Computed example of a mutant assay.
Amino acid sequence: MRKKKMRPPKLPPLLDRKIYKTGQTRGADDDVIYQNRVSRTSTVLIPYQLWNEVGAPPEGENHFSSGFICLIKPSDYFSSPTIKNDLTDKGLILGENALVFYQTRSEWDENNPDNLGWQPANNRTKPLGGKYVARIAATTATNNGEKISRGYNTTGMKGAGIRLFEYASQDVIDKCRIQLEAIFWLCHDSIEAVSEFEMEHEEATARKNYCLELAQAQGLLNYDGLLAARLTNVERVTVCPLCLEPLSGFGFFSRLAQALGREVHDLTVTEINLFHIKELRYGQYNHRPYNLGWGHHHCNVVVKDSGIDETLMWMSSVLTKNRIAGYYEPQNNDA
């Protein structure tokens, strides 16, 4: 009789939730077309003007897990006499996997979908239930300048899909979660940290060994690769990808320090957050193993969507200008 495989001890809820959320997209409010914090396997939205360059799923995949919707600017749709044939050549059909996307009031006024007898779409899989979607901000500059929000705006259907560059298949998401947990365990004080948050020392050691063995078996613990990606240092200790300071496991549980007098009572941001080494951008699917790590919240804010290399160049320029102007003098470590 085959021996039943024992399950590894559970992670502390806060850490488990942090790792789980890496498989979700960034936040989005009701005024945009994107869904708010949903799985990266959700329906992707592809701009028509970028279709030829970025319309294909990630290398090695035949399709997007939940399909796609191509968004066409009204100027592209209504100004081209060959648009229907152009769409057909690309495998696109309005109302099936493509929509006209209104974003400005002039677009709306020039080709009002109500005058065309069009219905707004509300399905993420074909048929989409309509031929257009609209997200037009309110304005006081003109009469009847109220906000126009049509399609995917009901309580149960907020947002048409996710940003294309945030997409990842479930297999990739799972691998990223395994690697991200392994990187956490490589923090110099990871065992001590989880031991203070609902894990016994023996459970923490067992979970760490289990995770590192699993990551090794799946090719997710190549230390040379982790070092090259700025995820660990030469001592195989987890570091922040921007400042390269070793990370403490306690930072995964500690709330971000707040300025005196500007405290927010329900702040949920922790000191350590998910960090993309190569930034998310059209034409690349950068939510993948060996491109995700953990970094300081403030370092993440500095990098934003620019990427580490561009950020370092900017930082170098700032320091040089301040040094020349006499505002900054590097510390002399030899003094």
Results as ranks from 00 to 15, higher is better:
residue 305 D to P: 06
residue 94 L to A: 05
residue 112 N to R: 04
residue 288 R to L: 12
residue 169 S to W: 03
residue 25 T to D: 00
residue 243 C to Y: 03
residue 242 L to M: 05
residue 37 R to H: 13
residue 171 D to K: 08
residue 263 E to P: 01
residue 197 F to R: 01
residue 15 L to W: 00
residue 19 I to Y: 00
residue 299 C to W: 05
residue 316 S to T: 11
residue 20 Y to P: 00
residue 182 A to P: 01
residue 128 L to Q: 05
residue 330 P to A: 06
residue 105 R to C: 08
residue 313 M to G: 13
residue 40 R to D: 04
residue 82 T to P: 07
residue 224 D to T: 10
residue 264 V to Q: 00
residue 290 Y to F: 09
residue 284 Q to I: 07
residue 57 P to S: 12
residue 81 P to S: 04
residue 323 R to P: 10
residue 109 D to P: 06
residue 9 P to Q: 01
residue 300 N to C: 05
residue 49 Q to L: 09
residue 317 S to Y: 10
residue 200 E to I: 04
residue 127 P to F: 03
residue 9 P to R: 01
residue 210 Y to R: 07
residue 259 A to Q: 11
residue 138 A to E: 14
residue 3 K to P: 08
residue 18 K to T: 08
residue 329 E to V: 14
residue 300 N to L: 08
residue 79 S to I: 02
residue 166 E to K: 02
residue 41 T to S: 08
residue 324 I to G: 07
residue 1 M to L: 14
residue 228 A to T: 14
residue 253 F to E: 01
residue 295 G to A: 02
residue 175 K to R: 06
residue 257 A to N: 13
residue 314 W to C: 14
residue 154 T to Y: 01
residue 323 R to W: 12
residue 323 R to I: 13
residue 24 Q to G: 10
residue 236 R to A: 12
residue 307 G to K: 08
residue 29 D to H: 11
residue 87 L to T: 03
residue 107 E to L: 03
residue 45 L to H: 00
residue 219 G to V: 07
residue 45 L to R: 02
residue 208 K to A: 11
residue 96 E to Q: 12
residue 109 D to T: 10
residue 127 P to K: 07
residue 233 N to H: 03
residue 260 L to T: 13
residue 82 T to S: 15
residue 278 K to P: 10
residue 145 G to L: 08
residue 259 A to P: 06
residue 209 N to F: 10
residue 175 K to F: 05
residue 225 G to W: 02
residue 290 Y to S: 09
residue 329 E to R: 15
residue 229 A to K: 02
residue 154 T to D: 02
residue 222 N to M: 09
residue 127 P to W: 02
residue 130 G to Q: 05
residue 286 N to F: 01
residue 316 S to G: 15
residue 47 P to M: 05
residue 324 I to K: 13
residue 248 S to L: 11
residue 252 F to Y: 06
residue 303 V to F: 01
residue 273 N to K: 14
residue 284 Q to S: 15
residue 40 R to T: 02
residue 302 V to M: 15
residue 35 Q to D: 03
residue 17 R to D: 00
residue 282 Y to E: 04
residue 146 E to S: 14
residue 114 D to V: 08
residue 217 A to T: 10
residue 215 A to V: 05
residue 326 G to H: 00
residue 13 P to G: 01
residue 288 R to H: 11
residue 113 P to N: 07
residue 102 Y to F: 13
residue 52 N to K: 12
residue 146 E to I: 11
residue 63 H to G: 09
residue 284 Q to N: 15
residue 145 G to T: 07
residue 159 G to M: 07
residue 262 R to S: 09
residue 121 A to W: 04
residue 243 C to H: 00
residue 287 H to G: 10
residue 2 R to N: 14
residue 145 G to Y: 04
residue 65 S to Y: 02
residue 140 T to G: 10
residue 242 L to N: 05
residue 59 E to S: 15
residue 211 C to E: 03
residue 280 L to V: 08
residue 258 Q to P: 03
residue 47 P to H: 04
residue 274 L to R: 06
residue 208 K to P: 08
residue 81 P to N: 06
residue 60 G to W: 00
residue 282 Y to F: 12
residue 104 T to K: 04
residue 278 K to L: 14
